[in-house]
Design a protein around this nucleic acid. Structure first.
Lengths: 196, 196, 196, 196
DNA sequence: CCCTAAGCGAGACGGTACGTCACGTCTTCCT
DNA sequence: AGGAAGACGTGACGTACCGTCTCGCTTAGGG
């Protein structure tokens, strides 16, 4: 089946060590503070070994961060109450996004994506896009359940939700509580509307 | 009155040349592709001359991009109709954000902000924060005019509006028309609410 | 009697392929241009297979070059006429040393020897020293035959002969004819003396 | 006169430090043991500073060694007695060539020359060729003085003299005394001839 | 006829050096 | 003083090579 199984196989331990080292450096020194040399040194690995697996810094960072969060399942909860589920989801994210570590990692993803279009697309495909689809899906279920208006622009609403979270994460440093309140406000505004 | 005006005054032409060179490089090669050496060379200027005016790359890029758009006035139009004004503002942004050049510049700002916390704060202070305030202000005027609900979380709504725009700009490459439609959808959802 | 001859025997074809590849690379790219990886690749062989037979680059190069010339017998001709025999021998060398290929190979040996003392000693033992001994021997036979002065410093004369050839080969690029004439001049000078 | 004297001038101290460091490394570790990184580190200088002045290792080594010896004057002594002068010159070289340091440096030159044709030519032009010319010149003066046969092939004799020295230096490790004796033998053989 | 030792291709791996690029500081001369 | 030019220390980049290693497969001789 596996057509080419020749040569010494790549060490899984090395893979982990590199990703761990990358995350450590990201949290400690930010995206700028990560260099292939430092990653290799911290992982106890030769530089070439890093390059053998990742062509450059950005994809390495993307994979390192993704691995930390991506259980692979971005599905939102579905208790039957769309509003409650959205709130739950956002609160969870607010919690995650309130630790300095997580914020550093997420900002690193943004940095990697902003530098290179290819990396951006990879990231969208593997992370952002999936979250987008998951939120859209939950909203559409809400439409079927009669909780969300059937003439609502679900895609646009999703953009507003994810966008607000992205904007807050990248732009300001806030406490978990502030963040959670703001997210609740976003959900309220979006559900009930702000016009008279 | 000018406290010390001795020696040769700084050349305004040099200032412009540097900012222009920076923008050219940003559009052509992205944030990564800009280096102080290249900027100086393209502007026909010595490296030191660049450093005499900007401490590092990020502030230079920020100023170069800001200068291209910011007339310094981020005030939203006020025709008395808050909804129409928001729509107008977003459509304008959609137009700006649909040219490849502009997208490149905006992504450069995001890159600068994501890489370094100091740069992020500078950027927020000079650009993002002002836009945020302008949108908030227009919404509050709308509240006074009875067009926006007085129990609406204006800050949260602003986050949703700006966030959606940021998210779209950074995540996907879309036509001006698509972008405008999506923005209209965001405004509709936010104004009328999506819950039944 | 072979103490242990178990296991798969080493392939003679592989041996030849490696030496051939080494010579090709030497001629094409010089000593610097030879790398164990390239040799292996060109020979269609695994790197490890090269290292199984030669501990490092220098001995490999030495053997590759030696194999091309050394029939293993460095004996000078002995027709009874020492002077004629020396001339014959030098002319032969001049011919060999006038092809670009051969010069490249000889210069490679010099490079290997000059870089590392161990390699130099190996080389002297296997090649230079043998040639030296062969020339000395022929001269001593000439002494016995009454053609060479019996108070001559045979070792010194040998140094002069071999040295002149080495010096010319390493220092200048010359035609076969020029080289042969010069060598003839060296023999003449050394035999008859240059003092009045 | 000096058409371009702009910019910060290159530091002479840096130049010396680099050449000194190169010589130290050559003596301690041989040509192979010299690397641009080590040279820079030992000289207390940035790697780039070394590359700014020398394109690669070989020319740097050539200049470093040349500087140690080349007073620029390779003229042989001229006391009126050609034979005595040649002997004096060779004895001086034998002394120089008997210290481990000098041998290491000379072997480094050979290594540099053997690796690259361009470097070889540079070296010949600046060092070997000059010595050759000086020896030839002294011999020709000897011809005029009636001490050297006027039908002698002066060029060939020079090749034999220099060649013998080169050969001995590169091939064997010997004491100063041995070396001097051998050189004396070379001169004797060449002057008086070895044929009966 | 299997068993065991070695050869062999393939390629991962830790190191070291390479030569280049970028950053931000500095020194020099010229205006 | 401003400005052009360019040297300089620092450090990251991505590549090449060295010599070792770990795989799976092949090729022999020995039980």
């Amino acid at each position: 089946m596996s057509q080419s199984r020749r040569g010494r196989p790549r060490s899984a331990a090395v893979h982990e060590a590199i990703l761990n080292a990358t995350r450590t450096l990201l949290v400690d020194a930010g995206y700028r503070g990560v260099s292939m040399d430092k990653v290799a040194a911290l992982a106890g690995v030769a530089v070439q070994t890093v390059y053998r697996r990742w062509p450059s810094k950005a994809p390495l960072v993307v994979e390192a961060v993704m691995q930390a969060y991506a259980s692979g399942d971005f599905t939102l909860p579905d208790t039957g109450d769309a509003i409650a589920d959205l709130t739950t989801w956002m609160r969870e994210y607010a919690e995650i996004g309130s630790t300095a570590e997580s914020v550093a990692l997420i900002r690193s993803l943004a940095a990697a994506a902003a530098e290179d279009l290819t990396d951006r697309d990879t990231l969208y495909e593997q992370l952002t896009g999936r979250v987008h689809d998951a939120v859209c899906h939950r909203l559409r279920v809400g439409v079927s359940a009669g909780q969300i208006r059937d003439d609502a622009d679900v895609e646009a609403a999703t953009d507003a939700l994810i966008g607000a979270m992205l904007y807050r994460t990248l732009s300001v440093t806030a406490s978990a509580q502030e963040t959670e309140e703001r997210y609740r406000g976003v959900i309220d505004a979006l559900l009930q509307g702000i016009s008279t």
